[in-house]
Amino acid sequence: MNEMVKMVVVLTVLSAAAGGVLAAVNKGTASQIKDQQLRFVKGPAIETILAGSSINPIENRFEIKEGDAEKSIFVGKFDGKANTIAFEEFGKGFGGDIGVMVGVNMDTDKLVGTAVTVHSETPGMGARAKDDPSFVSQFKGLPVANPVSVTKDGGQITAISGATITSRAVCAAVDKAMQAYQKMKPELQQEIKKVGK
């Protein structure tokens, strides 16, 4: 009986202590982890889209509430004007969600570039959406008002051969981003003024 109590007490105390320590470590590292994730997962995509920005887009980011989700908006400054933003949207790919970073010029309402951030597509097939720049470069310069789709669906984007589902997912993500952008535009213009200073 005595041993039974001891077992229960030791296990409980140990688990509680472990839980406490882990919670503390988690809290202590959370912001650092988020920073690292932005830098290494989304960083490369942001850098290709907002290449040549005079300010660091990751440091100059702000959050906007869109529906239930909070979106991180990355701002790029070109020729002294903070007029270009980038943010991430997701599309349903062959092997799960595909993250697509979409850059929009707020003055012209045109796409400045897109890049795939995370995906779990088949290497050599769908993964070419990330590895092969010629596919995503097709989005550059398209106006945000018109929806995009692959040529098979009557659109203007040539799909990656053998990876139609992936191509469709990227188009869907870009589409979603363009709609979200149009919805958020007033708010964006407000926020971006603060960055411009």
Partner: peptide, 30 residues
Amino acid sequence: IPSKVRIACFIIIIASFVTIVELLMQAYTY
């Protein structure tokens, strides 16, 4: 540690350290 539940205790301790390492690695060597 009572000998009957020693493996469970070891696992709790080891798992805690592993989680700490995982979080630290995420934070500093992503």
